[in-house]
Amino acid sequence: MKKMLTMCLVMAGVAYFTACSNTSRSSGTNNEADLYKTWRLVEVNGETIDTTGIPKPLEFTFEQADSQFSGSAGCNRIFGKFTLTAPDNISFPGLAATRMACPDMSVEQKFLEASNKVNKWAIRQGMLVLSQNENALLRFKAK
Results as ranks from 00 to 15, higher is better:
2 K>G: 02
4 M>A: 11
4 M>N: 07
5 L>N: 04
7 M>D: 03
7 M>S: 03
11 M>R: 06
11 M>Y: 08
11 M>T: 11
12 A>P: 11
13 G>E: 06
13 G>N: 11
14 V>W: 12
17 F>E: 04
17 F>M: 10
18 T>F: 11
18 T>H: 07
21 S>H: 12
22 N>K: 15
24 S>W: 15
25 R>Q: 15
25 R>P: 02
26 S>K: 15
27 S>I: 14
28 G>P: 10
29 T>H: 13
29 T>K: 13
29 T>A: 14
31 N>P: 04
33 A>H: 09
33 A>F: 04
33 A>N: 10
34 D>F: 13
36 Y>D: 08
36 Y>R: 05
37 K>I: 13
38 T>C: 09
38 T>M: 05
38 T>G: 05
39 W>E: 10
40 R>H: 13
40 R>Q: 11
41 L>M: 09
41 L>F: 09
41 L>T: 02
41 L>Y: 04
43 E>P: 02
48 T>P: 00
50 D>R: 03
52 T>K: 13
52 T>G: 11
54 I>M: 06
56 K>G: 10
57 P>K: 14
60 F>W: 08
64 Q>W: 02
65 A>P: 02
65 A>R: 10
66 D>M: 13
69 F>H: 02
69 F>P: 02
69 F>N: 04
70 S>T: 09
72 S>C: 00
77 R>S: 08
78 I>R: 06
79 F>A: 00
79 F>L: 01
79 F>T: 08
79 F>C: 01
80 G>R: 07
84 L>M: 09
84 L>S: 02
84 L>P: 05
84 L>D: 01
87 P>W: 07
87 P>Y: 01
88 D>L: 00
89 N>D: 04
90 I>P: 01
90 I>M: 08
91 S>Q: 12
92 F>K: 00
94 G>L: 02
94 G>N: 07
94 G>V: 03
94 G>D: 02
95 L>T: 05
96 A>G: 12
97 A>L: 06
97 A>F: 04
97 A>W: 01
98 T>N: 03
98 T>C: 11
99 R>H: 09
99 R>K: 14
100 M>E: 13
102 C>G: 03
102 C>W: 07
103 P>Q: 05
104 D>H: 01
105 M>Q: 03
105 M>P: 09
106 S>N: 14
111 F>S: 06
111 F>H: 14
111 F>V: 01
112 L>W: 09
113 E>P: 01
114 A>Q: 07
117 K>Q: 08
117 K>V: 00
118 V>K: 05
119 N>M: 05
119 N>H: 03
119 N>Y: 05
120 K>F: 05
121 W>G: 01
123 I>R: 10
124 R>Q: 15
125 Q>M: 06
125 Q>R: 11
129 V>R: 06
130 L>I: 04
130 L>A: 03
131 S>Q: 00
133 N>W: 01
134 E>C: 00
134 E>F: 07
135 N>D: 00
136 A>F: 00
137 L>Y: 01
138 L>G: 00
140 F>K: 08
140 F>M: 02
141 K>R: 09
141 K>S: 03
141 K>Y: 02
142 A>W: 00
143 K>S: 13
143 K>I: 09
143 K>W: 08
